[in-house]
Amino acid sequence: MKIQDSTWIRRYLTYLNVERGLSLNTRRSYERDLKKLYSFLKVKSKSFENCDGDDLSLFLLEEKKQGRSARTLARYLATMRGFFSFLLSERVRSDDPTEYLSTPKLEQNLPYVLSEQVMDKLLDSTPRSITQDIKRENDIETGNKSKSLALELRDQAILEILYSCGLRVSELTGLSLKDLTLDTGYLRCRGKGDKERIVPLGEPAEQALQNYLHEARGHLLGRQTSEFLFLNSRGGELSRQGVWEILKKRAKRQGIKNNVYPHLMRHSFATHMLDHGADLRSVQEMLGHVDISTTQIYTHVSRQHLIDVFRKSHPRAE
């Protein structure tokens, strides 16, 4: 009996989960791409079993006409290569229709980073002693004011960890209490493909975490229980969108005009580490990159920084 194309998509997603250990977000991305290809082939009265390289080329061409970037087209092709390789291994096909398709040439866009001065401004906490304010407010009332102070401590800890550790936002929101080892100054996080790594904590990040854990987390948690490290205002799991909002709010309050978002903290972490002499392999390890070529882009950012400084500072640079 012939198996439907939609079933093969489900089987492939199961394979990516069980055999490859890919994250849910990555699997969803593959699923979206394959469903789009499935719809295209269906209009052409084709299927995953009988389509050929020309059909796949037409699909990519159609997507390009609709304004898809070279990066998106390259992702579509990577998705198709993995999927048809799977179909080949399952003996659904005897050939690979992606064999002669070429990957679109990608422009190397250097990541935008914050300067160290702007980062210091972003991380600058309010001048008053938030911890003492929380203690005083908790003695007087349990209203909105004390909760807002608890959120301040939480936000400070989040900002410090994002910059100190270079975490992805999904890694940050996935942290649990058992991932912390503050007495030795590091935390454990799970990255892409559920790969675990150990990341050291800087002293400001460690102190911000201590303040949050001792003075704020219990206030947000209330009578609930949760293993998640960072909580929202209702004591539940903090979402990725919630982290975005925290950064936007802090940047606006500090008068920072730059577009600040979680991955920008990661870019800035890597670039500033290299600017201060960190070796590429160590930065790769801390970022959790499988391929060092992914980390190497930050050396270009660091080099560009030196060029900019030279051009602005040397009297005969121009």
Rank of each mutant, 00 (worst) to 15 (best):
S176Q: 13
H300M: 05
S148Y: 10
Q210Y: 06
L122M: 10
A317Y: 08
T79N: 13
N138V: 14
P97Y: 03
S268H: 05
T98Y: 01
L177S: 11
T225Y: 10
T173P: 07
H314N: 11
L13Y: 05
Q66N: 15
M1G: 14
Q66V: 01
A70N: 15
L280G: 09
I158G: 02
L231Q: 02
I9N: 02
S176W: 00
L201H: 09
L151P: 05
L58H: 13
K178M: 08
K145L: 15
I130Q: 04
P127T: 07
R250M: 10
I130D: 09
L177R: 10
V243E: 01
E245W: 01
I246F: 02
Q132M: 09
V118M: 04
T295E: 03
L16F: 12
L213F: 06
S268K: 06
D139M: 14
D183G: 06
Y15V: 00
L56Q: 07
L287K: 03
R10H: 06
S6D: 13
D5V: 04
S146D: 01
S45D: 14
A278Q: 03
L37T: 06
K105R: 15
S129E: 14
K147P: 00
L24H: 09
L180Y: 12
G222I: 02
S302C: 15
L22Y: 14
R266E: 08
Y186M: 10
K252T: 13
K135W: 03
F84T: 11
S6M: 04
T72L: 07
L101S: 01
L101R: 08
S176N: 15
L123V: 04
S85M: 00
T181L: 10
G174F: 05
K36F: 00
N50C: 12
V283E: 07
Q304F: 00
V260N: 06
V243C: 10
D124C: 05
E318H: 13
R223P: 00
G255C: 12
S39P: 00
L34F: 10
S115Q: 07
L114S: 08
S45R: 14
G21T: 12
E19W: 02
R91G: 00
H267P: 11
H263M: 11
G288L: 07
V301S: 02
M286C: 09
L221N: 01
V301R: 04
E90P: 03
S102C: 01
R91S: 13
S94L: 11
F269N: 04
L209E: 01
I140K: 15
E171S: 08
I307V: 15
L58F: 11
S125Q: 13
G82F: 09
T7P: 00
L77E: 09
S148M: 14
K252R: 15
A74Q: 10
V260R: 07
N211P: 00
L264G: 11
T299N: 09
T181R: 14
I158F: 03
S176M: 03
L231R: 06
D133R: 05
L88V: 00
I198H: 07
L213M: 12
V169E: 01
S23H: 05
